[in-house]
């Protein structure tokens, strides 16, 4: 039904207009990305230590050799040339070498992507599947017992430090009851170590912790939005026409209440990365967050920069997607 609506809209307004808007917003994202890359590069420059420090302790490194290395890596170039050089590397996939493991940053990051996606994806899904129905239910039954209990409870979700929530879940379900594994992504020993079921069991606690961050705010947001839509004229019209209440609520109201939710959810995608750093640390989940945390401890700057760059890209992309989806879904938006 939504789809039929969309195509009708495209036909009416002309598809090129939407495409033009998408193109315009995409172009606007590029200076943003450049600005963030400059900030990240500036951070890299502010880091204590020099890439050449390790050669200085090597007795075989003659001043000429060091000079040669400097020249080969362009370390004597003016700062803006160095930046362009670094940027070129980022674009062409040369993200540098990890200081600790001497491996390519890009390959180190890419092998952490799957575990992180498993964790964040599951959490996102849990939050969405619980928060939206709960918000709608609270809005429909506003002021009744469930709403009066659930809405103040969402405060706990917002006020809960997520790392502590993780610790408490570990204390109860892993240390106390022994039902679930406390950390890691797979069991080290055992018949089904590494199987999908094994990973799923390890996934339960961390994904509950990570979904809590969104669950509370999304529930509140859905509730507020739904109530707002219910107060509008077209809902009164639909009811006055004698439409079945269920149809009024779940077709007319829900659809309109969910449009702003799309933006909120899109804008929360990058936040999930910060959450992942915390959750992965608490549960020793071997994803990008753990890689970031370990690199902080070891001061492995190339990896830090790489992950910050990935994160910044994600934020800008999510912003872009949120704007585009909003414009496409809500015909009232003028470009």
């Amino acid at each position: 039904m939504q789809f039929a609506c969309l195509s009708e809209y495209f036909l009416r307004e002309g598809e090129h207009k939407v495409l033009k808007y998408i193109g315009k917003r995409t172009l606007q994202a590029i200076p943003m990305l450049l600005a963030v890359s400059i900030i990240i590069f500036a951070l890299l420059q502010a880091m204590p230590g020099d890439p050449l420090d390790m050669y200085l302790e090597n007795p075989n490194a003659t001043p000429e050799a060091i000079e040669r290395i400097k020249e080969a890596h362009g370390l004597d170039d003016p700062i803006h040339i160095q930046y362009l050089h670094w940027l070129k590397g980022i674009v062409t996939g040369d993200w540098g070498i990890s200081i600790m493991s001497r491996r390519s940053v890009l390959s180190l990051i890419s092998e952490r992507v799957v575990p992180t996606l498993q964790l964040t994806g599951t959490s996102f899904l849990i939050a969405l599947l619980v928060a939206v129905p709960m918000g709608v239910y609270c809005a429909i039954n506003k002021g009744k017992a469930f709403d009066n209990i659930a809405t103040p409870l969402t405060f706990f979700g917002i006020s809960m430090p997520s790392f502590w929530f993780g610790l408490i879940l570990q204390l109860i379900f892993a240390v106390g009851l022994g039902w679930l594994p406390s950390a890691g992504r797979t069991s080290i020993t055992g018949a089904n170590a590494g199987s999908a079921l094994d990973i799923a069991r390890h996934l339960i606690l961390p994904s509950i912790v990570l979904s809590l961050i969104y669950f509370a705010s999304w529930t509140r947001y859905t509730r507020t939005n739904f109530l707002e839509v219910l107060g509008q004229d077209f809902i009164r019209t639909a009811r006055a026409k004698g439409l079945h209440e269920r149809k009024v609520l779940f077709v007319h109201a829900l659809r309109n209440a969910l449009i702003p939710m799309v933006t909120v959810i899109m804008l929360d995608i990058p936040v999930i990365f910060s959450g992942a750093v915390i959750t992965e640390r608490v549960f020793a989940w071997p994803g990008m967050g753990t890689l970031f945390y370990d690199s902080i401890a070891k001061q492995d700057y190339p990896i830090l920069m790489g992950i910050l760059m990935v994160n910044a890209f994600l934020v800008i992309f999510a912003n872009l997607l949120a704007d585009i989806l909003y414009a496409v879904l809500d015909p009232r938006i003028k470009y």
């Binding site: 963030v36 880091m47 910060s274 915390i278 970031f292 001061q299 910050l308 910044a312 912003n319």
Partner: peptide
């Protein structure tokens, strides 16, 4: 746009 927590952690280093 700046990811707050990772940035603060980097600055702390």
């Amino acid at each position: 746009t700046i990811p707050t927590l990772p940035l603060l952690m980097t600055l702390a280093v």
